[in-house]
Amino acid sequence: MKTFTLILLGLFTSAQTMVDSRPVSNGEELQFKLSYGWFTIGRGTFKISDENVIKDGKECIEINVAGRTAGLVGVFSKVDDKWGAVVDKNTFMPYYSYRDLSEGDQDLKEKSYFDYDSMRVRVESSSISKPTTRPIKYFDIEKDNVLDMMGGLMYARSVDFKSLEKGDTIRLDAFFDEKFYDFEMIYHGIEKVKTKVGKIYCFKIVPIMQKNNVFKGDNAVTFWISADANRLPLKVKANMNFGTAYCELTSYKNVKSGIDSQ
């Protein structure tokens, strides 16, 4: 399942650059399939709340993502993971995020609270499989515009890619898994891509991956965002040590522009 999480993180990208539009609408729902070769090994759902949430007097959206194993893979290693956040509707900065992970005999429940008055993140975590009391942890926010995974995905869909040229570097400051990250990715222009929802012109992005024992090669992960009003995360390709895996959008509804695709 760590494969599913890592590929989903391939969608988690953002930039300290100009914003072109706000393509996200309330009630949006996206369905994804994770595959390896001919086999479907997982499925995911991305949902945005029907109504806005008010935090510190600001309008926010609530985002919930679920991922689970599918097919024969689920027989050997059952995974049922959930992620979510409440983020500012305009800046996508997080106020609250959570992870509820169940992977085989391992589990984790984690809640992160972002306090912009004290500039700290409070993280509370627990585990059923390891019920010992875990201390509350605090992390100082030292940079402006630090995003979480959900806010990063929202920002990525709003970047003004048309102002970029091929080879430009996009940067992001983020907090995830009790760590702050400096992400960089390279913009590779527009190309027409065959996806599960049709042949669509897309913005192509390649993150700069730190060396690890999971991904293979310098350009291990590539993802595509639709070059239209909806900026849908359409496809992620990951070259991994055991082969190539894909995360692909299979259906969507309640998008900002156009009709549903089921």
Results as ranks from 00 to 15, higher is better:
E165D: 11
S25K: 15
A229W: 14
I190W: 08
A220W: 11
Q262K: 13
T195I: 03
D107V: 05
F76S: 05
K253F: 01
S97C: 15
R43F: 09
C247P: 15
D20T: 10
I208F: 13
L30A: 02
F161N: 07
T250G: 01
V87E: 01
R68Q: 14
G258T: 03
G71E: 00
G44V: 07
V146N: 00
P207L: 01
F242M: 12
E62I: 06
I208N: 11
P135E: 00
P23L: 04
T133N: 03
A85P: 15
F183Q: 04
K237W: 08
P94Q: 04
A15L: 08
R122H: 04
V87T: 05
V206D: 04
N241H: 09
T133S: 05
L72T: 07
V86R: 10
V75G: 10
Y113P: 12
D100P: 02
R171S: 10
L172C: 15
C247G: 09
Y187P: 11
N26H: 12
V19A: 13
K137M: 05
A70S: 15
E165M: 09
G74H: 10
F176G: 06
W83T: 03
K237A: 13
K204W: 15
A229L: 13
S163V: 08
D177E: 07
G104T: 14
E29I: 12
L30N: 03
K137V: 04
A229K: 15
R231T: 00
H188W: 14
N212K: 06
Q106L: 11
W224E: 02
K192I: 12
L8H: 12
S77L: 14
A15Y: 05
I225F: 02
G217P: 11
K237S: 12
V79S: 07
I54H: 13
D168I: 03
K89S: 03
L147H: 09
L9W: 04
K55Y: 11
T69I: 00
S77V: 10
N26W: 04
L30S: 05
L30D: 03
N145Y: 08
